[in-house]
Design a protein around this nucleic acid. Structure first.
Length: 481
RNA sequence: GGGGUUGUAGGGUAGCCUGGUCCAUCCUACAGCGUUCGGGACGCUGUGACCUGAGUUCAAAUCUCAGCAACCCCA
């Protein structure tokens, strides 16, 4: 009993089953974000967390740069532009921060701090788009945006300053081409999340939940440990709604002036919230090797004379570094156990230990962060052995998360069942697709319809629980962030 | 949107009702020295705080008001 108490006392993190507390503590102890900045909804990236962000966003950039261009538009948007698109205004006006003064002078035209950048970018697209030969345009930027959230704010999830908003804005000749681009966007996002070992569900948002000003919205969701879903990516088909209000026209092959068709799609630091929450455990962070700031930590196990051991460790560290692996060599004056806990908290995927026993046998001890497996491997093959484990860690993280997601998607026949099931995961139920039925379902259950998922998950025979009509489409419902 | 609770060192707490007796305390914090080191070592010596502003008072961590921030509950 006394032993157990000591153990509890020593564990720095609350249990993950108490997700909210676990998450907040982990952000701080794991040095991802400092939540103590004295403005509601604004948080500070620690250098370590920012490193994770950098590596995560390098993946998005890599994927987008294949056929997008990165640009940068201003933070401030004149009220006159911001107020052009009626639906868009309705969607955002309660959340906009306004700049009203320059020094002591009141501005003639107030400036909105972008809550999203359509109205900053599209006046320029009006100027840039001239002919069909200019199309398509595929531009993205990674910026901060501001939303005056009135609900409970949460680091990385619901922020007043979104610090890491990746938004792409494309222009196309036809509605169909734009629709293709929306599909492409969701493909890119799924690939991005596969690289982060995060399983996702893509679905079409119900009409009442689409982006203000869009024809339709496709969304990428994942399931968090507390059984709420987190929207971690969206792609919007804007039709020519914005083209009309911003007068974005091109001359087609027949010499006619035609309105362009547009899409926009975004990802934010919610991707990192998902990364941390889905893989992390009671010992702290767990990162897929690709985004881990430190990929390998080398720990010398010292007895008495330490020189040989230290030398062997720093040799190993050098060899790994030469191969492009991010290595930390921990020679600090602490006992090995304390070091293990520290680096486990930081999510380092692979740990290499060298002690007298290893040295004698020309081997190293290799430990995986994700499952704790401890093995010995020949010193001569160290790079290969480490690389092999990187792959294994990534695969098993993705597999584990995918299974956990699948297990928590439950088929339901009645709304009572849905209501019960959404406390532990996602409920799948027939829906005729009608607005009135959908809203009634949400009302009855007290949770949202995410939409009709792509692929088999969205198909199946059943009766709409509200109107009773036969339908072949299945919706998913869940508590959401 | 409505209601409630709270703010004391890097973290956790006591003190607040009844103003002074406070040099408060603990730690997984920090610094130095020494002994240690195959899963959170130990000893010694140190460091460090009353959210911000105004008010009441001889005197404020403590009382009053305002602000800022955090948490919880309800819609």
């Amino acid at each position: 009993m006394a032993e157990k108490q000591t153990e509890e006392k020593k564990s720095a993190l609350p249990s993950k089953s108490n997700f909210s507390e676990w998450y907040n503590e982990l952000l701080l102890i794991g040095e991802i974000m400092d939540v103590r900045y004295p403005v509601k909804g604004l948080y500070v990236w620690f250098p370590f967390g920012f490193d994770v962000r950098k590596r995560t966003y390098a993946i998005i950039r890599e994927l987008l740069d294949k056929d997008h261009q990165e640009a940068l538009f201003p933070l401030l948007i004149p009220e006159t532009e911001f107020m052009k698109e009626a639906e868009h205004i309705k969607g955002f006006e309660n959340e906009v921060y306004w700049v009203t003064h320059g020094g002591k002078n009141e501005l003639d035209v107030k400036l909105a701090m972008r809550p999203t950048s359509e109205t900053a970018i599209y006046p320029m697209y009006k100027v840039w788009v001239r002919s069909h030969a200019d199309l398509p345009i595929k531009i993205y930027q990674i910026v901060n945006t501001f939303r005056y959230e009135t609900k409970h704010t949460r680091p990385l999830i619901r922020l007043r300053e979104i610090t890491s908003f990746k938004e792409a804005h494309t222009v196309h000749a036809t509605w169909g081409e734009a629709a293709e681009q929306v599909k492409e966007a969701t493909r890119i996002y799924q690939e991005f999340y596969r690289r982060l070992a995060i399983p996702t569900i893509v679905s079409k948002r119900p009409d009442w939940d689409k982006f203000p000003g869009a024809d339709y919205t496709m969304a990428v969701d994942t399931l968090m440990p507390d059984s709420k879903t987190l929207q971690i990516g969206t792609a919007h088909h804007l039709g020519s709604n914005f083209a009309k209000t911003f007068d974005i026209k091109y001359e087609d092959l027949n010499g006619e002036q035609v309105y362009a068709h547009q899409t926009c799609y975004g990802i934010s630091e919610r991707s990192i919230a998902a990364l941390i929450s889905i893989h992390g455990d009671g010992k702290g962070l767990v990162f897929p090797p690709e985004v881990a700031p430190v990929q390998v930590v080398v720990i010398p196990i010292i007895f008495g004379n330490s020189e040989d051991i230290i030398k062997a460790c720093s040799d190993v560290a050098e060899v790994l570094k030469k191969d492009g692996i991010r290595v930390a060599l921990d020679t600090s004056d602490e006992r090995p156990g304390a070091k293990y806990y520290r680096w486990e908290m930081k999510g380092v995927p692979v740990r290499v230990e060298i002690g007298p026993r290893d040295l004698k046998n020309n081997v190293v001890t290799i430990v995986r962060r994700d499952n704790g497996n401890k093995e010995t491997a020949p010193l001569a093959n160290i790079v290969e052995e480490v690389r092999k484990r990187f792959e294994a860690v990534h695969e098993s993280l993705l597999e584990k998360a995918s299974i956990s997601l699948k297990e928590r998607i439950i088929n339901c026949d009645t709304l009572e069942e849905v209501k019960e099931r959404i406390t532990t995961g996602i409920a799948r139920i027939a829906w005729c697709g009608e607005r009135e039925c959908g809203l009634a379902m949400e009302e009855a259950v007290g949770a949202g319809i995410l939409g009709v998922p792509e692929g088999d998950m969205g198909k199946g025979a059943g009766k709409c629980p509200v109107c009773g009509r036969e339908t072949e489409s299945m919706a998913i419902m869940a508590k959401t962030y």
